[in-house]
Structures are given as structure tokens and as C-alpha cells.
């Protein structure tokens, strides 16, 4: 059973690591289309690089849901963590076209929908 402190550390860990991966996507896309590769890199290495990236990305999106979205919905995040999570989802939302071009698995629709609902609710609370 994870303690509250461990859970919070894990949330910080995933907020950081998923963000690093999402922010890197434009660079990764550029690398995939860059014809200049070192002479020791074979076409099979390039293929393996793309396929393994997609495999690992799939797991990253699964972890987004299980390690961040569920604690977010359950109210296990601090205010700062919840804000960082919303910012991460906005970033992912902006990257969806790029993710489509790279054939990367998007986050589950429910994740983005819940975040949008939460954002609307917050706006409405602030307005009131």
C-alpha cells in the first residue's frame, strides 16, 4: 500500500518524466525525417528506433492514465500538482496532430474529456 508521501513523489515523478517526453516530440519527429544519419547507423536501426519509440510511447500513455489521471480524479493531487497536470494535458492536446503524423497512441479520449470538463468547472467556479 503506497503511503501518501510515496504517492505524491510518484505523481511528481510522472509529471516530470511524461512532460519531458511530450516536449521532446517535435525533436523526435525531426530526427525521424532527417536524412543525415551517421554512417554506422543502418536502415534497420532507424526502423527499430521508430517501432520501439511507439511501443514505449504506448506504455507512457497508459501511465498517464493510471499514474496521473486516476489520482487527479480521486483528488489525490496537491493544487500545484493538479495545475501541472492540467498544463501537461494542454501540451498533449496541442501535440495531437503531431502524434497522429508520428502514428503515436493518443491518450484515452476520456482523459482529455475529463480534463476539459474539469477546466470548464474551474472556470465556472472562478466566474462565480
Amino acid at each position: 500500500m503506497a503511503t501518501k508521501a510515496t504517492l505524491s513523489e510518484d505523481i511528481d515523478f510522472y509529471l516530470r518524466s511524461i512532460r519531458v517526453n511530450v516536449e521532446a516530440l517535435p525533436r523526435v519527429e525531426q530526427r525521424w525525417s532527417d536524412p543525415e544519419v551517421p554512417a554506422f547507423v543502418t536502415p534497420d536501426d532507424l526502423l527499430a528506433d521508430r517501432v520501439s519509440f511507439r511501443d514505449e510511447w504506448r506504455d507512457l500513455m497508459d501511465r498517464l492514465e493510471s499514474r496521473l489521471h486516476r489520482p487527479f480524479l480521486a483528488g489525490h493531487m496537491s493544487d500545484a500538482q493538479a495545475d501541472a497536470y492540467r498544463a501537461l494535458l494542454s501540451l498533449i492536446d496541442a501535440m495531437l496532430p503531431l502524434m497522429g503524423r508520428m502514428r503515436l497512441k493518443p491518450p484515452p479520449p476520456a482523459v482529455l474529456a475529463d480534463a476539459a470538463t474539469d477546466s470548464d468547472a474551474r472556470s465556472s467556479t472562478v466566474a462565480n
Binding site: 527499430a48 504506448r58 506504455d59 497508459d62 501511465r63
Partner: peptide, 26 residues
């Protein structure tokens, strides 16, 4: 642990959060 046997390279080795469902989700 994933491989492309026709091309020979191994791809990656990790511990997927969803376990077996990670394999079959697609």
C-alpha cells in the same frame, strides 16, 4: 521484450504498466 525477427534487431525491453493488456490493446 520486442523484436523484428525479419530485420533481426531487438527493439526494447521494459515493464508495461498495463501488463498483458498492453500487448493485446491494439
Amino acid at each position: 521484450v520486442a523484436f523484428l525477427p525479419a530485420k533481426d534487431p531487438w527493439l526494447t525491453g521494459f515493464q508495461p504498466d498495463r501488463g498483458l493488456r498492453y500487448i493485446t490493446q491494439d
